[in-house]
Design a protein around this nucleic acid. Structure first.
Length: 325
DNA sequence: ATGCCAAGACGGATGAACAG
DNA sequence: CTGTTCATCCGTCTTGGCAT
């Protein structure tokens, strides 16, 4: 496997290999890792219900737990076989790191484990790998990683690399393109090349990537000898915040509820995060429909304190109030 | 999904025919 | 003789289909 010299290279190594060599489930594990790293960076807590956990030991190794459902989308909910395969293969992927002082072999994941009963995946990460995830989680490389994860055609990947941040048109000869894609001996007819390579890639980039292109065949005579690609920027695909927000929403109610509301619920009524999450829809509606929701709660508070179950009292009071309005 | 192929269409190259 | 037009030819492209 690749020999690397510093963290940047390590990053780009994961990125590039993720594009081509990783199965879809391995990719999902990596991407979840980045999301978890991001949550940690931002100081958000995982709610107790979702089984995610990050623990650091004295030596910088990181213990990760995530539910199997995190890496499954359409498949059956508790498919251990898929998780096993993904972990097995991920744990066999390694990098060789060498600088003037050390030589080391770094596995992407260490000691993978599956808690069958709870359907939880556990594994360790080398400090360097975790650093890498943290870095991904901060910058646009996370976006890159995500993009790398989502393309289906490898040619889309290559074109994405070519076109990202490209301002001026690019020209390539047919041979150069074929060599770039390692398909020198395929597509003897140029139209097949456009049909199977360029068009599908363009289609996928148009749909998913902020960087796409239009192209023009270069034919000084009848024969097409090359292509010129004109970059097209699709900013609407650049906005990955929406997606991140969606994801965070699932993790933390903080996203839906204003800070004062959340604070009030937690400190005055002693709601736990899970409880807030359970009723998050109700609180959300209340927050938007009741003029000053915090004031409303403070009014309820006095009466609620006398009730056996103050939280329940509040919930009922909110429901009642919402019915009226 | 990917690579290959057949048939017909197309475009440019060539050169014969023709007009001036 | 020279320049223009047009038919013809050849290689390449397009379309659609087939096989894996």
């Amino acid at each position: 496997m690749a020999k690397i010299n510093n963290k940047d290279v390590l990053q780009s190594y994961i990125l590039t290999t993720a594009k081509y060599d990783y199965s879809v489930h391995e990719k999902r594990i990596l991407y979840r890792l980045v999301e978890m790293a991001q949550t940690e960076t931002e100081g958000l807590k995982f709610s107790s219900g979702d089984c995610r956990k990050i623990q650091h030991d004295l030596f910088g190794y990181v213990d990760i737990e995530m539910p199997i459902s995190d890496i499954l989308v359409n498949e059956k909910d508790k498919n251990h076989k898929i998780a096993k395969e993904a972990l097995e293969s991920l744990s066999q992927k390694y990098l060789i790191y060498e600088d003037s002082e050390v030589w080391e072999k770094i596995n992407i994941v260490l000691s993978p484990k599956i808690q069958k009963f709870h359907s939880i995946i556990k594994f360790k990460l080398e400090p360097k790998i975790w650093d890498c995830m943290l870095d991904f989680s901060k910058g646009f490389r996370k976006y890159e990683l995500k993009t790398a994860m989502q393309f289906e055609s490898v040619y889309s990947m290559r074109f994405y690399e070519l076109m990202s941040n490209q301002k001026s048109p690019l020209s390539y000869s047919v041979e150069a393109l074929k060599e770039m894609f390692q398909i020198q001996n395929k597509y003897k007819q140029i139209n097949d090349f456009t049909k199977r390579v360029i068009d599908p890639a363009k289609k996928e980039l148009d749909e998913k990537s902020p960087y796409s292109f239009t192209y023009k065949p270069e034919k000084p005579s009848r024969k097409i000898i090359g292509f010129t690609f004109f970059p097209v920027y699709n900013p609407q695909h650049r906005d990955d915040n929406l997606e991140t927000a969606e994801l965070r929403k699932k993790i933390s109610p903080a996203w839906d509820l204003s800070r004062p509301v959340l604070q009030y619920l937690k400190h005055q009524f002693e709601f736990t995060s899970t409880e807030v999450k359970t009723h998050v829809e109700l609180f959300k509606t209340a927050q938007s429909q009741i003029d000053d929701f915090v004031l409303f709660m403070s009014k309820v508070k006095a009466r609620a304190n006398r009730a056996k179950n103050p939280k329940g009292y509040l919930i009922n009071a909110i429901r009642k109030e919402l019915k009226q309005t």
